[in-house]
Nucleic acid binder design. Structure first.
Lengths: 174, 174
DNA sequence: ACTAGAAAGATTGATATCAATATAAAATGG
DNA sequence: CCATTTTATATTGATATCAATCTTTCTAGT
């Protein structure tokens, strides 16, 4: 009798994973929304990620990189990479932190602010349209649920924490 | 009087965008969940995306690429790229479609099935743990909301449709 | 059958993402 | 104050993501 080499997973399992996996659902929604906003923001010269990043730099005091990476729930090395094109375009400057010479401060330039200001109404329109198409209160609920998931699967696996074996601080307090 | 070159966006607007943008929330949750599942699946040699992709290939009949890309809500060119490492590892074969010589069929190899079968219990555990940490019914609700968003912002902006100016067919009917 | 258009994928180039690792500076414990 | 550890960030290498574009093959209309 022949060696049964390949392990069969029932098709029903495939359907189960397809229908229930929160990770898959999140990746799909994230791709779809990214495309939606990328398309909308294209005339402004920004992607959804660049918009979010630059918007998060619009603060009274220029923030260091770590907190921004945490805010965006991205790896610090991803942030370093994401800043490169924005620096090239002159929209963000990365300066040395005088208080801590290991660190950098992220500064939105005047030109960066202009680009961001042009993108803002597009974001508003796009987001309002999206909001309208969701059932009443759907957006708020979804936001809360996403927040919960980010924090939950984030606490233990926040990029910074994973390297250091511990959890890091709060970010962008109002 | 000096030229007022830079456009100021109030900090309150930044906080508004940070707190309400569904796209940002989705990207963050997607990154956090991706890390969670990537970490869990690492011993099995798979990333969350590779797991989802390979699982979606576990069907009675090997599917063509288009429907798989649609199912995963990713661009067709992304799928082409994502298949490369899986082909190299011998877990997926890309064969010519005898019915349509433009097309390809994606086949999970025996070795691919074995890898996937080893990853399955990890997925189950990880997903169950995640489920437990969400409030009652939270997972189901979130799934439905994510689904709605994917379909909504997907219909008009499905990768295939964006190129062709129209919307494509249903996928992976049970 | 022919031809124009549509559809399926592949390729290229730019950016995004993270793991592993490296470097430099600050903090901490003697 | 010095040695160790920790923290902040950068670099490299692999994969993921999409826009723009190209080739091949199929389909429709004639």
């Amino acid at each position: 009798m022949a060696m049964s080499n390949s392990v069969e997973i029932p098709f029903s399992t495939t359907l189960l994973v397809r229908d229930t996996c929160l990770c898959l659902h999140a990746q799909r929604a994230a791709r779809a929304l990214a495309r939606l906003f990328d398309d909308a923001l294209r005339p402004a010269g920004l992607t959804n990620g660049q918009f979010s990043l630059m918007m998060s730099l619009n603060r009274p005091e220029p923030p260091p990189m770590g907190p921004v990476a945490t805010l965006l729930a991205m790896d610090q090395t991803t942030l370093t990479a994401a800043l490169k094109p924005l620096q090239r375009k002159g929209w963000v400057s990365v300066i040395e932190n005088p208080k801590d010479r290991r660190g950098r401060l992220l500064v939105l330039t005047g030109e960066g602010k202009t680009v961001l200001a042009r993108a803002l109404p597009i974001w508003k329109e796009t987001h309002a349209a999206l909001d309208d198409r969701l059932p009443d209160g759907g957006a708020t609920r979804l936001r809360q649920d996403l927040q919960a998931v980010s924090e939950m699967s984030g606490e233990a696996s926040k990029p910074a924490a994973r390297r250091a074996g511990r959890v890091t601080a709060r970010v962008m307090a109002e």
